[in-house]
Amino acid sequence: MTLNSSFRLDGKHILVTGASSGIGLSICRAIIDAGGRVTGTARRQQQLSEMVRASGEGKASSIQADLADDTGIKKIASEVEEVDGVVYAAGVSKLTPLKFVKRQDLTEVMNINYFAMVLLLSQLLKNKKIKKNNDSSIVLISSVAQQIGTKSSLIYTGSKGAMSSAARVIANELAPQRIRVNTIEPGMVRTDMTAEMENILSTETIEKDRLKYPLGYGAPEDVANGAIFLLSDASRWMTGRSLTMDGGRYSLLD
């Protein structure tokens, strides 16, 4: 297929967190397909090695690290080669009604979804690992949840709201260096993380929710396509913004 080359990632090196499964893994594959090179990070070495092997010779490498602590973040920032883009796809979720919210759960989710994102970008910049004046792009995987108010989702929703707000500030700080920062705010996408939710909520509840999506639930590949656009030069005039991908769930009404 011939495609306007602005939409491709030839010659670009992208760091992807949460690369071992779900949306992160799907984004790694899409980057390779678009001609780019990936460094994937995650906690699980085996899945990372499988991603690297499946990507083909010289297309991908991995850094095993836990974003939950500073050691893991510093490891990534020091080991990764200079990048043209970063995708923050690491994330955890928890469903808890307000009455039962505990500091420990808040801390755990905020730590991965928000603190680690900020600290990793900070360390990458400090170590001069993000190319300047070269249309570099940072893509944060947030959630449409932060635009609405789904019951019991506040621990997760709060963390994604923090992420989406931070994206605008970081975009402003980095614009002079032509480093762009945007978020993707997906609706329900079938991954291991959401399968866990299905187990808690019951299949019937999930099925009822799915029917509210005019285009059904999304696949990780759908979000990956959005990420490729935001990483590529095709989106070079876009920063500090969000790409909502929710199959029409929250803007189309009967």
Partner: peptide, 12 residues
């Protein structure tokens, strides 16, 4: 489904 989540959280 909200009450269901409350029960799950209460048991936890």
């Amino acid at each position: 489904s909200m009450v269901a989540l409350m029960i799950i959280a209460m048991v936890d």
